[in-house]
């Protein structure tokens, strides 16, 4: 504190008093937090046909949807802060669920080793994505778009060849299914909150801890903020980025496992389109498209907001096609807000 006092006497012309409110408002996740609260109460007003604000079953519904988005959005947010995108994160859910279905119903494996193999498959795809981006220096947008389309074709053609239909069914015939479903896809209480919600919150806490407290988190910020500067001071930028891609694909694989166990079957088109939802969650949560800045906690509120919109529009008895319009409007509002926040953060005082 002594040095700060000295500062006052030496350079008063530069000192701007920063109040606690200004400090709070310049957090990256504050927009998503306030937005989620606003959306919650807005549907409390519009969805008057149901007890939106007080009914736990309603909350179980939208948290289920939010967890669907929020689990994979955690590593997607970290990846964006690290300066990269992964457009294959959606289709990976389908690929992983289908692989689990294949291993369980056609290779007749016990579900537990099958789950392990699927998670390894996810990590491997992430490694390939990351290595390609780092080695070719191509934009990750293009590299993962290619992965997206390759996997989409494999999912559709593979499933058709295997089953003659567009889905793999009877995943619950595998040994160990009941115990696995209990861990990944069961209901928590008689209000039917999903265990998935715990996975969502748990992964968010792990992601937030990594970003704020670990050395790896420091490296993520620097890899996205200024990779050259980071390399100059000895940060292994390539390793950091590859790890982030592996975390993203690996978590998408976990989501595929959760869905396959929950639905007991897997559609070949599963997950396609979700890649953009994950990115919207991260952007709403305060992540900059240019990298170097963002919040995992904010991403949780972003996912919550999108989950509420999805279910709220139905409960308000509006045409569910409006969901897309809402998602677009939320994204736009978030980007404008982020621009404002970033300009504040970079402003020379």
């Amino acid at each position: 504190m002594a040095t700060e006092t000295a500062a006052h006497t030496q350079h008063d012309e530069r000192l701007v008093s920063v109040g606690p409110l200004t400090r709070l408002l310049s957090r990256p996740d504050i927009g998503a937090f306030l937005g989620a609260i606003a959306v919650f109460f807005a549907f409390g007003y519009f969805a008057r046909g149901v007890n939106w604000l007080g009914d736990p079953a309603i909350a179980a519904g939208w948290t289920d949807q939010a967890a669907q988005y929020g689990i994979v959005a955690v590593p997607v947010a970290l990846l964006m802060i690290g300066g990269e995108f992964d457009l294959s994160a959606g289709v990976m859910i389908g690929s992983s669920g289908l692989l689990l279905g294949y291993l369980a119903t056609h290779a007749h494996m016990n579900i537990w080793p099958a789950i392990l193999l699927v998670l390894l498959f996810g990590l491997a795809i992430g490694f390939v994505n990351g290595l390609t981006v780092v080695k070719t220096r191509l934009p990750s947008f293009i590299v993962t778009l290619a992965t997206f389309f390759v996997l989409q074709g494999v999912n559709a053609a593979g499933t058709l060849k295997l089953t003659g239909t567009t889905a793999i069914d009877d995943i619950d015939s595998a040994k160990g299914f009941t115990s696995a479903r209990h861990i990944f896809a069961s209901d928590l209480t008689h209000w039917s909150f999903k265990v998935k919600v715990l996975w969502w919150i748990g992964l968010t806490l792990v992601g937030a801890w990594l970003l704020a407290k670990s050395r790896f988190g420091n490296w993520i910020y620097s890899a996205g903020g200024d990779p050259n500067a980071a390399r100059n001071v000895g940060v292994p930028v390539a390793r950091t980025k590859i790890t982030l891609f592996m975390m993203t694909s690996g978590t998408a694989a976990l989501m595929g496992v959760i869905e396959a166990l929950e639905l007991r079957s897997m559609q070949s088109k599963e997950g396609i389109g979700l890649e953009f939802i994950f990115i919207i969650c991260a952007v709403v949560g305060g992540c900059l498209l240019t990298g170097g800045y963002g919040s995992v906690i904010g991403t949780l509120f972003g996912a919550a907001m999108l989950g509420m919109v999805q279910l709220g529009i139905v409960d308000a008895q509006w045409d569910s096609n409006w969901t897309y319009t809402f998602q677009g409007a939320i994204l736009f509002a978030a980007v404008v807000l982020n621009l404002f926040v970033r300009n504040r953060a970079q402003k020379v005082k």
């Binding site: 420091n218 910020y221 200024d226 500067a229 980071a230 001071v233 170097g292 970079q346």
Partner: peptide, 20 residues
């Protein structure tokens, strides 16, 4: 001249970047 500093990161994170 370009300082090897990341503008969006805090002073202390920059100071110890790569040697936390």
């Amino acid at each position: 001249q370009d300082l090897a500093m990341v503008p969006l990161m805090s002073v202390w994170r920059n100071f110890f970047l790569g040697a936390e």
